[in-house]
Design a protein around this nucleic acid. Sequence first.
DNA 1: ACCTGAACACCGTTCAAGT
DNA 2: ACCTGAACACCGTTCAAGT
Lengths: 252, 252
Amino acid sequence: MFTFLHAQWNVIPLYWNIVPLVSRYGMNKKIHGSPRRDESLSRESIIEAAIGILDQDGESGLTFRSLSEKLATGPGAIYWHIADKSDLMTAACDAIVAHAVAALATAGKPKESIRALALGIFDAMAAHPWAGSALIRAGGKMPIVRIVECLGKQVDALGVPQQAQWVTVCALLNYMLGVSAQNAANMQLARSGAVKRADLLDGVADAWLQLDPASYPYTRNMAGALRAHDDRADFLAGVDLILNGIDSHRAD
Amino acid sequence: MFTFLHAQWNVIPLYWNIVPLVSRYGMNKKIHGSPRRDESLSRESIIEAAIGILDQDGESGLTFRSLSEKLATGPGAIYWHIADKSDLMTAACDAIVAHAVAALATAGKPKESIRALALGIFDAMAAHPWAGSALIRAGGKMPIVRIVECLGKQVDALGVPQQAQWVTVCALLNYMLGVSAQNAANMQLARSGAVKRADLLDGVADAWLQLDPASYPYTRNMAGALRAHDDRADFLAGVDLILNGIDSHRAD
DNA sequence: ACCTGAACACCGTTCAAGT
DNA sequence: ACCTGAACACCGTTCAAGT
């Protein structure tokens, strides 16, 4: 019964598919006057457009209205291809992660491969900060799966025993997610405050220096390092710290 | 000039402070009939009420309208004490972090202290998932400072050389933030889907098992561990991995 | 099937007006 | 100073109606 009703959609109202495209613009309108798209919507084209908006205007710039405007359609049309905003963000994030993982060299020593993956993800999230916050909300969906698969392979090649692989992969993954999400949050803070990232960092360092010396000696002591640090180098140093930990754990 | 105008507020319209409180309810209303608060608003009472809503209804339950209703006032009144929603979330998060840090033992070996801090934060974020996502958006504000100070002290006591302390503290902090934020995201997913966390995990594990065996062998292999794992134990194992890495780094 | 766009049920934030 | 609540400028999402 349901199948029958469903099939009707494929059989009966096909007429609009035969009518020439030009008629969709109306007889009284200029053919190229209105900004209608002439290719039909697809999940891929929607995600591509979403990434364009996210890169240009940040996370707050992407709304179903701005997206539908860019696609020359109505907000409701998007829902035929995308479940909701969370689905949209995860799919956009996955495109970034898939691209980063695909660019990785296939050969190489396990440790070098893990370092390369970590840097690849770091650079991708630095170039698309919105993807960092999307990644941490992606649950166990595709973007996470791609990273887990790559980490799992290298951790196995590293000789980590089967029962310890899960914990090892999780440690690396969680560290990478933490850095990505925090960088994303900082980028968004800098964007909304209309200041450069360096100025934002200077502001935080200044605030740290004004803390009570008796209560926060160590934080005050690290304010200089905060101001001068290199995100990318520090990120890699953290990865190495975990990799060293894996070595010494195996040596037990 | 500005000072003079400003001072007027303290001098001239004091009359309403002398009028008995009861008159604020109006002569024709029952004194206890309307749900008005009889204590004036304060930043602390607002944050306390916000935490109550966040714990009960989650992050999506906290709006300036629901908060002002709980405080028996209007939405605009809150803005006299709180800058904006980001300020509110950071302040609520800081109350949770401050409480967790205060509960820590003051003595003990550095490694044990780091483990205790990490577990304290983990447990606090598990009890208040909204605080995990707030923490990662807190920039270098108070909740982060509290954790950095505690980590810095213990890393120093551990004998990590001055120039390596920043990187070491960052690695531990980023790992903790990553776990907290991801747990928070999972909790929110479970809440919005109206399913228990265990069912959510089962669903992800099932999805992993249905991946293409040729493309995702390692992820499929870890689906069992995902289903059976213990969040808290795995979190601590990750902390130990980093602590081991610090040891072997010092040994170089 | 796929698209349209108005409508619904919300948000965070502001601000003239009160006390 | 501090509070009130209507108003502003948005959101994500739904859905009857079109083709």
